[in-house]
Amino acid sequence: MRCVRLFVLGAAVVGMSAVGCSPPPPAKETVVTGSVTLDGEKLTMGEVYFEAEDGSASARGEIAPDGNYRVPSAPLGKVKAAVRTSNHAQFAAPKSKDGKAVTVGGRGGTFVPVPKRYEEVGTSGLTYTVTAESAINITLSKK
């Protein structure tokens, strides 16, 4: 009887250690970086939004004052994209009395509205394939 207990205990230990050694599941998301241009000029305020083609996952990242963006957890595979600037209109930099732009809300960059169609993934027409550590430059047009 003691031998049977030791055998069962040994089998349990081996089984548990095998579970701990299994490879991690494949990644479902990655970092995407790039820039967004509107008619050749870099946008310096807004956000980039990626949604998996099947709608199962999404992620967003801010466009920095230097014109680059970073989406830290974009879904892998085919995605639809949107570029949203309308929610940043409140940070539009007014001009001071001397004609220079003023930083509003602690944000750098200049508010530039994009055509409304780019604000939503369903109307933007922007599609990409996201792979590990992708760099995607997004080109928009007012036309």
Rank of each mutant, 00 (worst) to 15 (best):
G10V: 06
V102F: 04
V48S: 00
K95R: 15
V112K: 10
D66K: 11
A64T: 11
P23D: 14
P115H: 04
A12H: 07
K143E: 15
T129W: 01
S134A: 14
G34V: 09
S96C: 10
A27H: 08
V36S: 02
P72L: 10
K116L: 08
T44L: 04
G77I: 03
P113L: 07
H88S: 10
A135T: 14
A101I: 07
I136S: 00
E62D: 15
S73G: 09
F7G: 09
E51T: 13
G20D: 09
G105Q: 09
Y49F: 12
P115M: 04
T123A: 11
C3M: 12
K100M: 12
G106C: 06
S86P: 01
E41Q: 15
G46S: 04
A101F: 11
T30L: 12
K97C: 04
D39F: 06
E119G: 06
A64V: 01
L140R: 01
I138L: 03
R70G: 01
A64N: 14
S58A: 14
T103L: 13
T131A: 14
G105A: 11
G34A: 11
S22H: 08
Y69L: 04
A59Y: 02
P65N: 09
M1I: 10
K80M: 05
T37Q: 12
V36D: 01
I63D: 01
A64F: 14
D54Q: 06
S134E: 02
I63N: 00
G108L: 07
G61E: 08
S73I: 04
E41M: 08
V114M: 05
V102D: 03
K78H: 13
T30E: 12
A132V: 04
V130A: 03
K116C: 01
V8C: 13
F50S: 00
E119F: 03
A59T: 01
S73C: 05
G77S: 04
T85Q: 02
R70Q: 14
D66H: 09
R70K: 15
I63F: 07
R60K: 14
T33L: 09
E133W: 08
T139R: 12
V48D: 00
V31K: 11
F7K: 10
S96Y: 03
M1N: 11
P94L: 06
T131Q: 15
G40C: 06
E29N: 12
G122W: 07
A27P: 14
V79G: 03
R84A: 02
N87W: 10
G99F: 11
G67K: 02
A12C: 14
G61Q: 05
N137S: 12
K78R: 15
A81D: 00
R70P: 02
E29D: 14
E51H: 02
E47H: 07
T127I: 07
S141I: 06
Y69S: 03
L38M: 05
K78G: 08
D66F: 06
F111H: 07
E29P: 01
T110D: 10
S22P: 01
A89P: 00
M16K: 08
V32K: 01
A81H: 00
S17K: 07
S73Q: 13
D66G: 12
K142L: 07
E119A: 11
K95V: 05
V13A: 15
V121M: 01
L9Y: 09
F111L: 08
L126P: 00
G10N: 08
T33K: 15
V112E: 10
T139K: 14
P23F: 09
K100C: 03
V8H: 08
R70A: 09
